[in-house]
Amino acid sequence: MISWGVFHWKHAPFESPPKLLPQCRKSPLERAGVSHNLGRTTEHVSGDVGLSAGHGLSDAKKGLLLAAPPGLYAVLLLAVPLGAVLLLSFWSQDFLTLDRTFTLKNYREAFTEPLYMLLLGRSLLIAGAVTIATVVLAFPIAYFVSFYVRPERKSLWIFLITIPFWTSYLIRVFLWKVILGYNGVLNSSLQGLGIIEEPLTFILYNANAVVITLAHAFAPFAILPIFVALEKIDRSLLEASRDLGEGKFRTFTRVTLPLAMPGVVAAILIVFIPTIGDYVTPRLVGGPDGLMIANMIQTQFLKLNNAPLGAALAVIAMLSVSLISLGIVLATMRWMKGGK
């Protein structure tokens, strides 16, 4: 006998007459052990996918309410401070007193003092070189993992590639100094193998060292977006290209590469932009010729106590980076549309 008549709180306002439910047997198909897998299909006519108990707040309000804490945090600790830096760059500082009258003095100084422009130019060049080196080195790896690694092994490879990125940044940079030094690992190994007689000197305390070290530091940032773009490519497109008579190489240049472009552009931007802001690598392995604009910004803020000038340099650096990034995006726009 089934206790189907037990009153459930939820249905309290409604009377639920007790019902007798005879047990039903297992269906013949289930008994025969036939099981079917569920392929999910969802056809929701409505655009509403919110968790709504029905009649509370509208979806837009709930979304806004949820987005408010992280949104406000980002506004207060990102947007407002960035605005403050912009504001500060139009003020001036004399020793420790801040003069809040509007002035273009900092920008005048930044643009007329050759050292600043030299550092900015060098930073952009190094960032460009780092970006090219990183992306060119990363592409084959992304391609390899996407096309040649078995699907179930892919996430292991991605994991292996990301691990070094998460390990102590300072110590990693320092170890490159050890590897690239005059008596470093690379030189002593090469000498030991008899490949070179004198230690190589062009690989430490200059821009080359900065490029090598940063290409290492930003490797996963370049590999992941390219990998994701390559993964999205429908493999039958490549077969179609081969079927239509193109060789392996031409298939790569006419199909794979254009379709991977969004990932490549993302990789370029995600490497190029943060590289400008690094002052640790130039300081540790760059030597005097490898210093970058971020070192100067840091110095202005923390050592010379000229925050307004530092702010102006930061604004100039950010603007240059933004303009170049915008240029890259615009230049590749047509390409990317063609790719899609």
């Binding site: 945090y73 600790l77 401070p81 931007l269 932009i273 943060p274 702010a311």
Partner: peptide
């Protein structure tokens, strides 16, 4: 805006908060 720090040079974040 929430995702911006992912691409922002860290020195800019540091400097702006310091300011």
């Amino acid at each position: 805006l929430i995702m911006v720090p992912l691409v922002l040079p860290e020195i800019i974040v540091g400097v702006s908060l310091l300011v």
